[in-house]
């Protein structure tokens, strides 16, 4: 839902970042307002996953330039946990398995951290059980998964459902979903996408990082951005995703090559 007067939630300006000595992001700019759904598409290695990790504050990535403002405040100076408590959520491409830590306890600690960030009271174990059972419905997840260790032995689809369950509990203002569609069969994709659609509202925003059009068949983006070689090459509406699906990424390469021949025009 595009409303030009909606408040800006995330403002990324000329963001550059590297991992070890390798520059990955080479000047990304993006503005996300409340109510919007954005999709960032691109080939493997285009930098789209790096963008998501930099936003969440992964320690392996170093920001070398540019800025990110979240609701008008500098995001990059915050520890990852403070970003999360303020309402930024990263749905992981490969959710991490944590043996020995119960999923239920993890969800409760995380939910209470976020509630504290919103100035709300912590939930005791009983109140939290009620909440989590209600939110399980969003992703049609079996309560048995609450008793297991975090993501341990979960199938790909179950892990992604668990990510969306976390999103449902944490009620983020900006959800960055990194390749949430990868490794999902069509039923799991529908359930996960249904959860994302259910949670999207006028006051929050979603940034989908994806490789394929198929996720965008079930979640309709307001904006589609094509990323290549660490920058956003083109921005359009949902029809841009369809064009990519039809023509493939070859034209992106051609456009990128043209850009790199005339570096003076960049930026």
């Amino acid at each position: 839902m595009i409303r030009p007067d909606a408040p800006v939630l995330l403002e990324i300006r000329d963001l550059t970042a590297r991992v070890e000595d390798q520059p990955i992001l080479k000047g990304v700019s993006l503005t996300i307002r409340a109510g919007e759904i954005h999709a960032v598409m691109g080939r493997n290695g285009s930098g789209k996953s790096t963008l998501s990790k930099v936003l969440a504050g992964h320690p392996a990535y170093t920001v070398t330039g540019g800025s990110v403002h979240y609701r008008g405040e500098d995001l990059l100076g915050l520890e990852p946990e403070l970003r999360a408590r303020a309402g930024l959520f990263l749905g992981f491409q490969y959710p991490v398995e944590i043996p020995g830590v119960s999923n239920l306890e993890f969800l409760r600690v995380a939910t209470n951290a976020r509630r504290a960030g919103k100035g709300e009271e912590e939930l005791d174990t009983f109140a939290f059980e009620d909440l989590v059972r209600e939110r399980l419905l969003v992703v049609q997840m079996d309560p048995a998964f609450l008793e297991r260790s975090v993501n341990e032995g979960f199938s790909g689809g179950e892990k992604k459902r668990n990510e969306i369950l976390q999103m449902a509990l944490l009620e983020p203002l900006v959800a960055v979903l990194d390749e949430t569609d990868s490794g999902l069969d069509i039923d799991a994709l529908r359930i996960v996408a249904g959860g994302v659609n259910h949670l999207a509202g006028p006051d929050n925003a979603t940034l989908l990082i994806t490789h394929y059009q198929r996720l965008l068949d079930v979640i309709t983006p307001d904006y589609v951005h094509v990323m290549a070689a660490g920058r956003i090459l083109r921005t359009g509406g949902k029809e841009l995703a369809l064009e990519l699906e039809e023509r493939g990424y070859d034209w992106v390469d051609a456009e990128l090559a043209a850009l790199e021949r005339t570096p003076a025009e960049v930026g």
Binding site: G57, E81, F92, I98, F106, V109, G117, L170
Partner: peptide, 8 residues
Amino acid sequence: FYLQSRGI
């Protein structure tokens, strides 16, 4: 990082 990204 996974736990931190959930506010912990």
